[in-house]
Design a protein around this nucleic acid. Structure first.
Lengths: 346, 346
DNA sequence: TTGTCTTACGAAAACGATTAAGTAACACAG
DNA sequence: CTGTGTTACTTAATCGTTTTCGTAAGACAA
């Protein structure tokens, strides 16, 4: 590998001059600069990041922390999309993305923070994880710039998908279609799901729709089997719902299977809606009504905010950015006409 | 940050002793070692990777190169799964994963190789990309250890999903179900798709099934719209196929929509099969017949081979590992009984 | 002439680790 | 007593940069 020393010899100048020329310092003559740069290019010089990082304490590396154990790491649709746009934005700004982990290797086990320090990340993005994990809070409370996605820590930057707004829009649509018996199978308790649940109730009230307790159930994220079972139970109620909302699109597919297995049609007999807007949802029959989260913007905003925090530690005032989603009106929610509703009531 | 110097002061020994104690060299007394380690722990010492890398030329970092521009980077199901298991395996061995990119940032543009050198990757994994790209071949021909996934460069380690075997098994199943008019919408030309296509023809011959040219068409990977259109065209042929194979499960869904839109039933009227084994396939109705690629093993093998190449540059003889997939017999391929076939022929 | 500025560059000390080579202390054989 | 080995350290060089503090040369004013 050709180093600055090689260039300095080739040019007959000192390494200091080479360094300054390549970094465009003002105290080097213009022609010297040009010459040094040209020679560097010719010799195929490549800066040594380790050496630079050792001096400057900047690695231009960003750590990304995802949940690992739930097996859904990168195959988690929502998260993979967010990460993808995060990555693109970060790379455009000259930062590379490395995954943080705490798996034990030959040298024992490192906490997230230890690992981050070891790698010398300039900043860290956290998402899709148990935010109460002590290792996570340790990382957040360290002096490493942090941005969280879909969770707020006091005094830290957070990028939030507008779950309350999304659910409000979805419920508004469902109610607007005339549904009055709406069930909600929500995801396992988390900051995200509680927001959606609260918004669900609030919007129901807004539209004067009553929600019996037995209409509200729980099935973990992306758990098709559980949502299948819960759906069957809902349909066996004395007064079954006319519409069922699911924690995500996968779960919705599970529910749709349950509905069909019971000989009912979607949306004629039962309406369903998912959440997330996975690519395949558009191609299901009927097309799935869902809320598409703007993963592109979430990822971009996260990267932008984190990098601005890294590069201008003080000036960053914005602490939370909420990114709206939008309703995808598929055809899995039917319009209940007045007489139909009367019929059902009769 | 506490460094070895701090520890050496606290312990009244030299930094060399600290270094050796922490790295378990044999020429340090056992009690000294223990003491130094304990103090290091108490002081919250964290090794500085940059400094270490500067000396040792090892970063314990692996670069991963994916296609970026096609927008399907991390949201590519097959690849996200492979990456996920690759990551887990690598982390278990003490390596971290960073994405390689060549996007132009403030400092101009780096090639993949330049970027890899800059980051000092110990090794590189390449997948899901245009393998003819000169930047990619430049990277492969460098002195950096490389493993490729689903593509073979001479004298380099490659991990291959058994596309020929998978297609053979799938075709064997379809033919075994009595199908004799089988169409294949294959993906855009690539090393992967040509292997499948060859295997498709070979297996057809093996079963004495003739494939008219008009039965073989092309639709890009995951392109639901194109496979929708191609499917419609296939069904409008004078002698339409009884079974259609698709390049992937997404495309299959597109095809299924076309079939249904034409008022036909799956699998009673037309059978379909996908490829990949996406999670949702199990929950489609009918359940999609497909070939599940063993992404777990592919990722693990890639990481294992790459790391062994990194750590024992000479000893690695194995150059290609083929990972078999397995048929998922859904219910989207019907069994054609003899008389039905006779009927159709009549 | 002397003093002060500017410009353009160099010397050298870091940064935090690793490691080859050296050395002091002691044991033990001859 | 001398020579040879161990054992347990220390010294010092080194990796490739960055950056602070020179300093020499020339310009220009007083």
């Amino acid at each position: 590998m050709v180093s600055m020393k090689d260039i300095s010899k080739a040019c007959g100048v000192s390494v200091a001059t080479v360094s300054k020329a390549l970094n465009d310092h003002s105290d080097i003559g213009e022609e010297t600069k040009q010459h040094i740069r040209q020679v560097a290019r010719q010799m195929g010089y490549s800066p040594n990041l380790s050496a630079r990082a050792l001096k400057t304490n900047k690695t231009h590396g960003i750590g990304v922390l995802f949940v690992d154990d739930a097996r859904s790491g990168l195959t988690h649709d929502y998260f993979a999309s967010v990460l993808d746009s995060f990555k693109r934005m970060a790379e455009k700004c000259g930062y590379d993305i490395t995954f943080i982990n705490s798996s034990k290797n030959r040298k024992g086990r490192m906490t997230y923070l230890e690992h981050s320090r070891y790698r010398g990340f300039d900043g860290v993005a956290i998402a899709c994880i148990d935010f109460d994990d002590p290792e996570v809070t340790e990382l957040v409370q360290s002096n490493i710039p942090v941005v969280t996605i879909d969770y707020i820590y006091d005094n830290h930057i957070a990028i939030l998908s507008d779950n309350a707004g999304g659910m409000h829009e979805l419920m508004g649509f469902v109610c607007g279609q005339g549904h009055e018996r709406i069930a909600y199978i929500h995801g396992a308790a988390s900051n995200v799901t509680t927001k959606r649940l609260a918004s669900f109730y609030r919007t129901a009230e807004e539209y004067g729709v009553e929600i019996p307790d037995e209409y509200v159930r729980e099935a973990p994220y992306r758990n098709t089997e559980k949502s299948y079972r819960e759906t069957k139970e809902l349909l066996q109620l004395k007064e079954p719902p006319t519409c069922i909302l699911y924690p995500d699109d996968y779960a919705a597919v599970g529910g749709m299977n349950a509905i069909r297995d019971m000989g009912l049609r979607i949306p004629e007999d039962i309406s369903v809606a998912g959440y997330d807007g996975i690519p395949l949802g558009k191609y299901l029959q009927p097309q799935l009504t869902t809320v598409q989260q703007d993963t592109e913007q979430i990822g971009v905003a996260a990267a932008r905010e984190l990098i601005s925090l890294i590069e201008r530690p003080k000036s960053t005032l914005v602490e939370q950015v909420t990114i709206p989603g939008h309703l995808v009106e598929g055809s899995s929610v039917s319009h209940l006409k007045q007489k139909e509703r009367d019929q059902k009531r009769a």
